[in-house]
């Protein structure tokens, strides 16, 4: 279970404090699939980062009782000067997983071959994306956080990613941020809408999406 209780997030910026999240309450149970909908700058990514534990709330409590992934993305989470293999080892060590087994999976999934022994900074963006996704899949989590993750890669790669994530890991919880309504309808049961840092829950994804569309049309 993931529980967010009265969470506020305030950033100190050059022009004073900016409140990004206001009194966010959220509960996600094991195996649940939640979509988070919101316009640009509504605070979606900040919310995901707070759930993942890489940022701390300014006020309020985050209580996690399951293994939560880092926000899956096709970049980040690794070190450019190190090789693909070294990155795999480092991340495995952090999460206490056997790296030999993980490396086999990464080799198989990323299909990077000998490039895995080259520094990541020499990779093309497509190669990076393949490695990043493989690395995200080598550690097993109970809940996966997806932040606009399927925006990159060709159709075949996307299909493989989706099979790995939603097929093989169909029993896990997911929290998904996306502007792609179809993607959300394919994978989520429930939806919550974020408007200027305030999170509102809806009984179904359809209602959440309708409410969001109406809000966007009203132009406020």
């Amino acid at each position: 279970m993931i529980l967010l209780d009265h969470v506020d997030k305030v950033y100190q910026t050059g022009h004073g404090p900016t409140q990004v999240l206001t009194d966010v309450n959220l509960q996600v149970m094991r195996g649940e699939r939640l979509a988070i909908i919101g316009g640009n700058g509504a605070g979606k990514s900040t919310l995901i980062r707070i759930i993942s534990g890489i940022e701390q709330p300014t006020r309020g409590v985050v209580d996690c009782r399951m293994r939560i992934s880092w926000p899956l993305a096709f970049s980040g989470a690794f070190q450019g000067t190190l090789t693909g293999v070294d990155n795999v080892r480092f991340i495995c060590r952090i999460y206490g997983q056997d790296w030999r087994e993980a490396l086999e999976f990464v080799e198989d999934f990323s299909q990077l071959g000998k490039y895995l022994k080259e520094p990541i900074k020499t990779y093309s963006s497509g190669m990076r994306a393949r490695l990043a996704f493989a690395i995200s899949m080598m550690i097993e989590f109970d809940c996966y956080l997806l932040d606009e993750v399927f925006a990159v890669g060709d159709a075949r790669f996307q299909a493989r990613c989706q099979e790995e994530l939603f097929g093989k890991r169909g029993d896990r919880a997911f929290i998904i941020v996306s502007h792609d309504a179809r993607f959300l309808f394919d994978h989520c049961e429930r939806g919550s809408v974020l408007r200027s840092g305030v999170l509102t829950h809806y009984p179904s994804l359809v209602e959440a999406q309708e409410s969001h569309d109406e809000y966007m049309r009203s132009g406020t």
């Binding site: 993942s52 534990g53 890489i54 980040g76 989470a77 690794f78 070190q79 991340i91 999460y95």
Partner: peptide
């Protein structure tokens, strides 16, 4: 900062 992307670091 990139390392802090993993919650345990």
């Amino acid at each position: 900062l990139a390392l802090m992307y993993h919650r345990n670091v």
